[in-house]
Design a protein around this nucleic acid. Sequence first.
DNA 1: TTGTAAGCGTTATCAT
DNA 2: ATGATAACGCTTACAA
Lengths: 338, 338
Amino acid sequence: MKYVTIKDVAKKLNVSISSVSRAFNDKYDIKKETKELILITAKEMGYHPNPIAQKLSQKKSFNIGVIVPEFINEYYSEIIIGIQKVLIENGYQVLVMQSDESPNQELANVMTLTQNMVDGLIIAPTLEGENMEFYLELCQKGHAIVFMGRIDESLPASKVIFNNFKWSFFATEHLISQGYTKIHHLSGYYKSNVSKERIKGFRKALEKHKIPKENFRVIETGFFAKEGIKVIDDLINSNDLPEAFFCENDLVALGVIKKLRDSGIKVPDDIAVIGFTETIMAKLMCPQLSSVKQPTYEMGENSAKLLLKILKDENSQPETIIFDGELNIRESSINKRK
Amino acid sequence: MKYVTIKDVAKKLNVSISSVSRAFNDKYDIKKETKELILITAKEMGYHPNPIAQKLSQKKSFNIGVIVPEFINEYYSEIIIGIQKVLIENGYQVLVMQSDESPNQELANVMTLTQNMVDGLIIAPTLEGENMEFYLELCQKGHAIVFMGRIDESLPASKVIFNNFKWSFFATEHLISQGYTKIHHLSGYYKSNVSKERIKGFRKALEKHKIPKENFRVIETGFFAKEGIKVIDDLINSNDLPEAFFCENDLVALGVIKKLRDSGIKVPDDIAVIGFTETIMAKLMCPQLSSVKQPTYEMGENSAKLLLKILKDENSQPETIIFDGELNIRESSINKRK
DNA sequence: TTGTAAGCGTTATCAT
DNA sequence: ATGATAACGCTTACAA
């Protein structure tokens, strides 16, 4: 591939390459007519500034690295779309890497990206606590980083997180309002702050409504349908089914509902179920699934904006944006007997 | 951010920068001991070759652009993962952009990426026929491009496609084998080659089994659950329901099943349904959905490999890889009365 | 307002 | 086997 360079344009117009450069960069003085002439001629010749040369010259890559645990589910996909929109508008390229839910892969991704001179990073870690010393070091070295989601509060960096406590509280309170008093919470991983917050919200709601302790349980389940199925299987065997399940996410809820149905137990007639981190499936399932919707797109946009702020002002202080959600009540958690 | 450069390493060891460069590039003569010394010292100092400088020097970006219609659904996500694996292993970075199902956005994405000097492109177009002259031009200019999925056969370029005809045929034949003779095919967009191939396969199966013409219909539906719902709504109103539906994809099938259920019609007891381009939902739905699985990951891997081949040998001839799928029969298409 | 030239961090060609 | 140096395409002091 042969590209037209700044020299070609300069030669054609008998001007210096600096003038051509200036024509493409607003910040310098240049006569209006020359600028226009250059711009027009450049366009005719099919010239575009070579971003790689710009990067080398400016010691900036105009690349932003985005690292997510996965993008098979729409959650991170939507976040990425929000990020991309903001960053592309601001002249950045977005390099997306996925860690396959592995902290090691995550670390490798960070390495690859920093070695490729990304100007900044948006990292959605797979697990809080992992790689934390490394991230601390990165931050102290002055890397521009925004963390997202599953991240330790203690890390002195900008963060975009979801108010898991609050919306876990609301989800639980909703189940209580439907008259359910025996409720199990199928949690993600206890290690994770997200899960801890959800558990806190769950407990808080039960306490507020004075549900006796023996009426609720928290079960470490995981993120996938398969794991939801397994838990139900165990509970059926031990004859320990509650009146309602508050699940880690829609996928787990889906597994729960499937297993219950296969066992002849109807949702919500016999047992109510509510999900979290709403997916497109929620509305299409049978029964339609109640869930907590997170503003994924906005979360992506805002993490990008936060990063741009850091990029513009190196001395900007770490900032944390906490997002609220939306409780969407559907069939799966409605108490028909009430 | 302060990076260690080749100069720093050279100075420290009192060697020339060429030697350091050579130590990092196998293709040159350099004494084994000096090489090792340089490599060790470089590592100690935290030196990595600056990829941007390498790119400028070599007039290669080592970036590959990947453009997909969307990555909200797992289909393209999985393809991307396959692509990334192969390309990253080969020292390339992958820039992913999504066109939001818009040919205009797709064009803008191609522009952005070519202007950013990507060495090659993998393009999954949103709609065949759109932007075709432009792609033709790109190919003729010598850009390394692999097309994927919804692409005109006529384009003289490397392609990775799925055998829609064949698997549409098998899906239809399966419905026939279940004893259904009144079958409707809810197609994507008639414009699209993919849909055309699916329709051909559908017709071929019906012809083979001598189903009378008045027993089958093709209805242009679209890609989303909403559109499936609308079609069923219309068919119920016009009292024109068939015995079985062969849907464009799982999402449409989901809409179909939902609407039928809401109307008191049971699947598969009253009407059978089969999807296409299997998603994770298929196994989790109620009833479990029969569908045709596409080898997404492998398709991604192979498109990347195809691109690498072009990159290595400029004169390599266009090649087309056609992938086969897998017909997964589940509850939704089983005729219980048979 | 414009031009000159140094510099960004490499690779690659030519000497030595 | 090693070093000097031009070149890659651009930005940006500085000079004119």
